[in-house]
Design a binder for these strands. Structure first.
Ligand SMILES: [Mn+2]
Ligand SMILES: [Mn+2]
Ligand SMILES: [Zn+2]
Ligand SMILES: [Zn+2]
Lengths: 145, 145
DNA sequence: ATTTAATTGAAAATGAAAATCAATATCAAC
DNA sequence: GTTGATATTGATTTTCATTTTCAATTAAAT
């Protein structure tokens, strides 16, 4: 964990709640919303406050250990960055399932477009919205009724 | 305008404010936020209410003449759909400028990935965040100071 | 012109996220 | 280990974007 380095550098403290929230967040490989993470933490730390979860999540972003992402809902989600492998997302609008994928060729073509427009890209977001295999099947059987 | 068809079909009415808001929105080729459009309309229709702008924008989405998009800010933007040509976006995080681009090859590769994962794509979002040429220059000259 | 239902603007309500603040916990210095 | 400065906590309030409510107004079909 080079979180400790960050905290020391900034004169911040490692509290019990931070430790537990961060451990939970970084271990589960999910795209947590603040609410989801809060609910998960309540079970292990009944006293936690909502605000602490928000604060910790933002701390992780500042420390470079997480990023904010949004999947078309009007809520912010957070994604651990410790694996540090860039990827994009497929989001099932039926069940909410999120599938990660990599596609180097697409990445390359994105750079190409940017260059064409004299645009200096810092980050990008690519999301496919649709139905996963399961939800697709469900939809088809519904339509038949 | 096949907006009138939609209104008739749904038993809705074409009011003065709707007419003006919609005309303004569809003519300017911008990615309006509700607030921006409200401010633009206030000048032409001092009495308009904020709620009416929101309602009209949502009406356009329901009618299939606009879509909601979000560019990483925590506000919703609306994009006219009348040209009906799909495109993706480059967003300048310096000046807010939005550049539209098309890249059929990227689109094709997206479909390919989806197929690979048995994912049935309904829509997608691809946004490049970075600096436009102008803002790039500004940044460089700042760094030198 | 009459009637009916949709629409409007103002204000209140909502929901996610951030800010406030008094009480508490961390941790570096002793 | 104790102390003390200061960062953090949880509860609460505030903010901000968006939606809802509601009484008054307006569109448009008859
Ligand atoms: Mn991911
Ligand atoms: Mn556009
Ligand atoms: Zn699904
Ligand atoms: Zn710019």
């Amino acid at each position: 964990m080079d979180l400790k380095d960050y905290l020391k550098k900034k004169g911040l403290k490692l509290t019990k709640q931070r430790e537990k929230i961060i451990t939970h967040f970084l271990n589960k490989d999910k795209h947590f919303s603040a609410e989801e993470l809060y609910n998960a933490m309540k079970k292990r730390m009944p006293g936690v406050g909502y605000a602490t979860v928000y604060r910790t999540l933002n701390l992780l972003v500042r420390a470079g250990l997480a990023t904010k992402i949004s999947f078309g809902e009007n809520i912010t989600r957070f994604e651990p960055l410790h694996r540090n492998e860039h990827h994009d997302h497929m989001v099932c609008i039926g069940c909410g399932k999120i599938v990660e994928f990599k596609h180097p060729k697409i990445e390359r073509l994105q750079k190409e477009v940017a260059r064409r427009y004299n645009f200096y890209t810092q980050s990008h977001a690519l999301e496919l919205y649709g139905y996963c295999k399961k939800c697709r099947k469900k939809n088809i059987s519904k339509e038949k009724k």
